[in-house]
Simulated assay, not measured.
Amino acid sequence: MQFCDECGSMMHADGDTWVCRSCGYEELRDSASEGAMTTTEGQEDDDVVDMSEVEDTEIGPTTDARCPNPDCDGERARYEMKQIRAADESETRFFTCVECGKKWREDDN
């Protein structure tokens, strides 16, 4: 993967040139440095994981949370917490309703 020296965006290969789609910066490709790059070319991710027979307790923690889907009366949700903002701010909580699968998030404001 190559990143733009001007704006930091990911660059895309266009023949023998790297092109930034954000700012238009161009740079010649270097086959020696590209040999060390990891690509997703030729990788397949078609494996479907069957979770139908997995116990809820094995999937992750749940908590009391009212589902925001108006068509669902679910009051339990799986949750996960991630630090997606600045380190001095609280984590964001991501929920998935165990009844309907609706996903939502909560931030401390």
Results as ranks from 00 to 15, higher is better:
residue 30 D to L: 08
residue 24 G to L: 05
residue 37 M to C: 10
residue 90 S to H: 08
residue 49 V to A: 12
residue 63 T to I: 15
residue 33 S to M: 11
residue 108 D to R: 12
residue 87 A to F: 06
residue 95 F to I: 00
residue 104 W to N: 00
residue 9 S to R: 04
residue 28 L to C: 06
residue 59 I to E: 04
residue 8 G to N: 10
residue 84 I to D: 05
residue 108 D to K: 12
residue 88 D to K: 09
residue 48 V to F: 10
residue 51 M to K: 13
residue 14 D to R: 12
residue 55 E to K: 13
residue 28 L to Y: 04
residue 30 D to K: 07
residue 94 F to L: 10
residue 81 M to W: 01
residue 12 H to N: 12
residue 47 D to H: 13
residue 91 E to P: 04
residue 23 C to P: 05
residue 67 C to P: 02
residue 21 R to C: 02
residue 66 R to W: 06
residue 63 T to S: 14
residue 32 A to C: 04
residue 25 Y to E: 04
residue 65 A to N: 02
residue 103 K to Q: 13
residue 52 S to C: 09
residue 98 V to I: 15
residue 11 M to G: 01
residue 38 T to M: 10
residue 42 G to L: 09
residue 74 G to P: 00
residue 48 V to R: 14
residue 15 G to F: 05
residue 86 A to Y: 07
residue 86 A to M: 12
residue 15 G to D: 07
residue 88 D to Q: 11
residue 42 G to F: 06
residue 80 E to V: 14
residue 7 C to Q: 07
residue 28 L to P: 06
residue 71 D to E: 15
residue 103 K to D: 04
residue 86 A to E: 15
residue 69 N to M: 05
residue 44 E to Y: 09
residue 14 D to G: 08
residue 79 Y to M: 04
residue 37 M to S: 11
residue 10 M to S: 12
residue 68 P to Q: 10
residue 69 N to I: 02
residue 93 R to S: 15
residue 44 E to N: 10
residue 24 G to I: 04
residue 56 D to Q: 12
residue 59 I to G: 03
residue 106 E to Y: 06
residue 79 Y to C: 01
residue 45 D to K: 11
residue 12 H to Y: 09
residue 9 S to L: 00
residue 103 K to H: 12
residue 107 D to E: 13
residue 90 S to T: 11
residue 11 M to A: 02
residue 11 M to H: 00
residue 84 I to R: 09
residue 59 I to D: 02
residue 75 E to G: 09
residue 66 R to Q: 15
residue 15 G to R: 06
residue 8 G to V: 03
residue 85 R to H: 10
residue 43 Q to I: 15
residue 9 S to W: 04
residue 9 S to T: 06
residue 102 K to Y: 07
residue 29 R to K: 11
residue 10 M to Y: 06
residue 3 F to V: 09
residue 76 R to N: 12
residue 6 E to D: 14
residue 42 G to M: 08
residue 66 R to V: 15
residue 98 V to N: 01
residue 48 V to N: 06
residue 57 T to L: 10
